[in-house]
């Protein structure tokens, strides 16, 4: 199956935007990816081996959290997308508060 690598993780995957791995489950695919590119591991997983909370993994168009997580079965033509979350926002002050640098 194909795993799409997001821009920030490509330096740790030989600069590739996609990697092909043989796998029967999402877990096997991610394990195959991190075996091949070990530097990716710390970016995807916490020290106790859990996927980092901000790392979204989608099998085709579905969040694996709402499937069978890492036990979700995969097929050859499937695409796994790794997408770190995008969020943030300002506060309501005019600068100079505890959370605004200037």
């Amino acid at each position: 199956m194909r795993i799409l690598i997001p821009t920030p993780l490509r330096p740790y995957a030989a600069k590739q935007d996609a990697v092909e791995v043989p796998a029967k489950t999402v877990g096997e695919a991610l394990s195959g990816l991190t075996s091949q590119y070990s530097d990716l591991r710390r970016h995807l997983y916490t020290d106790d081996g859990k996927l980092r909370a901000f790392v979204n993994v989608y099998l085709n168009d579905e969040d694996i959290r709402y499937l069978q997580k890492e036990n979700t079965p995969v097929r050859d033509g499937d695409t796994l997308s790794i997408v770190p979350s995008i969020a943030g926002g300002g506060c309501r002050c005019l600068g100079g508060c505890c959370c605004c640098p200037r």
């Binding site: 920030p8 901000f54 943030g88 926002g89 300002g90 506060c91 959370c99 640098p101």
Partner: peptide, 29 residues
């Protein structure tokens, strides 16, 4: 490639907040 993101700060300076940093994960973007 995805090279970056944008957002607005309504009635707030165009500076990053601690929330912005804490929730930013796309290094190099």
């Amino acid at each position: 490639d995805i090279v970056g993101f944008y957002h607005s700060h309504p009635d707030h300076p165009a500076r990053w907040s601690q929330t912005d940093l804490a929730e930013a994960h796309w290094i190099g973007c």
